[in-house]
Design a binder for these strands. Structure first.
Lengths: 358, 358
DNA sequence: ATGAAAGCGCTAACAC
DNA sequence: GTGTTAGCGCTTTCAT
């Protein structure tokens, strides 16, 4: 059985006195203030019922003793928990953690949005093959809902989770027959903008680098193919390279592709990191960027402007992303129907695929 | 008052049935299994006291209903909470969030270490000027301890927090008269290795870029100065540039420095991002890297190898960092005296400051 | 305006 | 081996 209720006087001594410091609780504050526990509770919650003078005295005492309400107990009583779980999938097979700067930026953006609204963020990783395990955070009451970063290959698992009425929002692309709420950039538009830009530079042999098993990449490829068709350029499967986001795995694949005979004068990459890998591989083969091959990245990560060459890239609305994701989740919790949301993206033109001359 | 204990039969229906789904609890499982709540509790916790057959039946039932123990209630009862708060300070003045790839890598590393040991991670940001506010997570019982990423300018606040007996570990450098437990790379060594390398390339006018108000940078500068002295090169204050980590603020400062008359042929930067900024500024001024100026970064961020030129940089032990930080924190919680820990670093040589010829 | 008491969902000592 | 019961620290109804 836990520590007995009785406690030595030293328990209420100021911080740092003893090495065995019992956590302060309302009863202590109540005793010191000469009021009841309920009064302390009300005072600390700013209840109008309590005399202003008493309220301030209690608040002052609590602050001076560094007392904070025990949120576990409060939440249990109130049946709520102001905590959202943010889940970053990782690839267990390649043992590669998802450390793409873009995903980390999204996490930062969510952290901000949650903080603004007074929520805490529980950050965890989950095997990308078992996205459904993420529901644990909800089932155990630790979090009131989930934000998942990316759909990966498991559109189906996500649909099941949504069917289970799990409060869930996913950063990713909007797919046909989707039951869950997704928030993401307009991937088709992104693919189109990048491809059109390369076409406007006179490039005709345009490669596409990214794993089309992922919904977001699949959509970007739609945009890519569409832009090519618009321009009367045939889509050539030989120019499509299925490279995953993890640099460790992608490096070899990209190098082999760039060293092969396949001729191309432009590349649309599905992340800035992939663009960087591609540029490096091209140069290693004596091809210049953007001279021989113009390269476009995706995400517009914070470092994109500081690379050499600075990356032309599809800018994703990271700053808004957090707010949108959080808003969608909280809406769902209020019982609103959570519609998927696709946000506009734009092309940020830099040196790796500069503006057309003239 | 919260929902009454009485509940309609529908409450125990399988997931996804109703839109108003009450959370399952032990009492439900107990009723369905025809046993008492304590039996369920024991069964789910794998107590040897319970009949194997009963235990499995209960476990099976719980799993099939997607039941998870309410951790809030469990923690309240057990007086523990398997949650660690990881706090990333941000610069409120410049409104710049700390998004340096290195700090994010450290967060990832901590996430792994915590997951391995069965702990959850509460990630939050705090104003770098008020690091002491981070204690809230502990005081409120949400977390059993704190991991702070970086000391920033507030060695003093950290000392106070430690004096208050807060379970706390800080990623950063070990300073004189330090009361808190720090874990970090050997910054003096890092500064020395970088500087010596530049000296070995024949460089003599070596600049140092970083804000020496930060303990880690201060230590690196010690190493820098020491290496110069060893080589009989005078330390020239004109070659020291106080640039902060935030790219937004640093960019202008670095550009001005590179555009000025000050002559230098080597630079030690205190982060890879600063190195990138420096390289860009140098090139903008018609100076080549590493030809005219050899540049060394710090951290060896994941992208360092993919930049152009790939960065020579001081490699920080990120992978170990999480494990060390977590181990130190848990040790403290077991009452062990938490000694600061300094880990070795090494230089990763790449093209921005290549190996000496021959 | 304040206090007494019940109970949030769980665990574990104590019965049997 | 299983049930009964008393709290963990808090909020809130109800009584004063």
């Amino acid at each position: 059985m836990p520590k007995s209720k009785a406690s030595p006087p030293s328990a209420i001594a100021t911080a740092g006195s003893a090495s065995e410091q019992r956590r302060l609780q309302m009863a202590d504050i109540a005793r010191l203030a000469g009021v009841s526990v309920s009064t302390v509770s009300r005072a600390l919650n700013g209840s109008e019922l309590i005399n202003v003078e008493t309220r301030q005295r209690v608040a002052e005492l609590a602050r001076s003793l560094n007392y904070s309400i025990n949120l576990g107990a409060r939440n249990l009583r109130l049946q709520e928990s102001k905590t959202v779980a943010v889940v970053v999938p990782y690839d267990a097979k390649s043992r590669q953690h998802i450390s793409d700067p873009f995903f980390l930026s999204i996490v930062g953006s969510i952290a901000d949005a949650l903080t603004d609204r007074g929520y805490d963020m529980l950050l965890s990783r989950v095997d990308a093959e078992r996205l459904d395990l993420a529901s644990h955070w909800f089932d155990s009451g630790k979090a009131i809902g989930l934000v998942l970063i990316g759909q990966w290959r498991h559109h189906d698992q996500l649909n099941e989770m949504a069917a289970r009425k799990l409060p869930l929002v996913v950063w990713g692309g909007e797919m046909p027959q989707q039951l869950y709420c997704s928030v993401g950039g307009d991937n088709v538009l992104g693919g189109t903008l990048a491809t059109r830009h390369l076409l406007s530079l006179g490039r005709r042999r345009i490669a596409f680098v990214g794993d089309a098993n992922l919904p977001e990449v699949w959509l970007r490829r739609q945009g890519y193919a569409q832009a090519l068709r618009e321009a009367g350029v045939a889509v050539d499967p030989a120019l499509e390279l299925a490279a995953p986001f993890e640099p460790g795995v992608a490096t070899g694949i990209v190098r082999k592709f760039c060293a092969a005979q396949t001729a191309f004068d432009g590349v649309v990459c599905c992340s800035d990191v992939l663009a960087l890998l591609t540029i490096q591989a091209l140069r290693a083969n004596g091809r210049s960027v953007p001279g021989d091959v113009a390269v476009i990245g995706y995400d517009d990560m914070p470092l994109a402007a500081y690379c050499d060459p600075p990356l032309t890239t599809v800018h994703q609305p990271v700053a808004q992303a957090g707010a949108e994701l959080v808003q969608a989740l909280l809406g769902q919790l209020r019982g609103e129907r959570a519609e998927p949301r696709t946000m506009p993206v734009h092309l940020t033109v830099r040196a790796s695929a500069p503006a057309a001359a003239g």
